[in-house]
Design a protein around this nucleic acid. Structure first.
Lengths: 153, 153
DNA sequence: TTATTTATTTTAGTAACTAAAATAAATAAA
DNA sequence: TTTATTTATTTTAGTTACTAAAATAAATAA
């Protein structure tokens, strides 16, 4: 049963490394490195028309204050711009600049490449093998809610 | 191949939930909730004789300054105590108080329970099934270093 | 005894937030 | 129409979890 224990330790190490990686800023085709919160922000705005701060905060699951703060940083780096509509002086809309779109695309590409690699691997597995991975996820998910329920008290 | 994609999305959601859970403070048999950095700190000190700040910072992989800062919080909550040895007035040693030991034990128990549950599940799997999980980890680990290497530039 | 090394602490700064107060515009009610 | 309320956004102060660099102080080496 030693191999099972090794597997668990390995999973913990992988978790830790993913976590560390996520904390580091990364380049996304732009001059400046971007932190996760910033690139998520850009990803949520998306190319196209732009949306207002409240919609964005809802989409990201963060407070309006946080949106204003992250927006200020991205505004300074010229990755987004703010504007109002003529018929409404209250709402603030955010959209990507050209450089913002480049960051958006690079970020999407980054995830697409990872996704494709993983899919390629998974497609090489049999149905029974997929079931093993799926079963493992069941166990993990089944354990997770316990923690969340405790906090609600 | 839709099931493979579903699996990937599910993995991402699980990742996110684990991450969120890790950020929340949790009780460990003590009156006050503890953040991850605090309970890691306590876990690294361990019951018994205690160690000095430099050893601890090395063990935790954080700076000495961070150790001083976290120690200040735990000191105030009465979970650790600081002392010097008669023969050395320079080094500061840290050890757990009785309540600190309780937190330590609860934290260890928390992980042991999780570990046991996972082991129990894994022991029910065949060698081939374990190989599937192991193979998946290979792919994940193989992808990870790419990110780390980039940063070293 | 002076210089250097080692150990620790302090200070200022960053990321990634939250919660609450302040501000301002739009809508509803008196 | 004026006042009140709701909605949208921003500001401020605070928190966790750090780092990097400067300050301090004790121990060791020159």
């Amino acid at each position: 049963m030693k191999d099972r224990l090794k597997l668990l330790n390995r999973a913990a190490r992988i978790q830790y490394r993913i976590d560390s990686n996520n904390k580091r800023p990364r380049p996304f085709g732009t001059s400046y490195l971007m932190y996760q919160s910033e690139i998520h922000f850009i990803d949520a705005i998306g190319p196209g028309d732009g949306l207002n701060a409240s919609e964005l905060s809802r989409k990201l699951g963060i407070t309006n204050g946080a949106v204003t703060q992250i927006a200020a940083k991205l505004l300074e780096k010229n990755l987004i711009l703010k504007y109002r509509k003529d018929e409404n002086k209250k709402e603030v809309y955010l959209k990507l600049t050209e450089e913002g779109v480049i960051a958006f695309e690079n970020h999407r590409l980054f995830h697409k490449e990872l996704n494709d690699r993983m899919l390629e691997y998974l497609e090489g597995l049999s149905g029974e093998q997929i079931d093993v991975i799926s079963g493992l996820m069941d166990v993990i998910e089944n354990y997770l809610p316990d923690i969340e329920k405790e906090e609600e008290k």
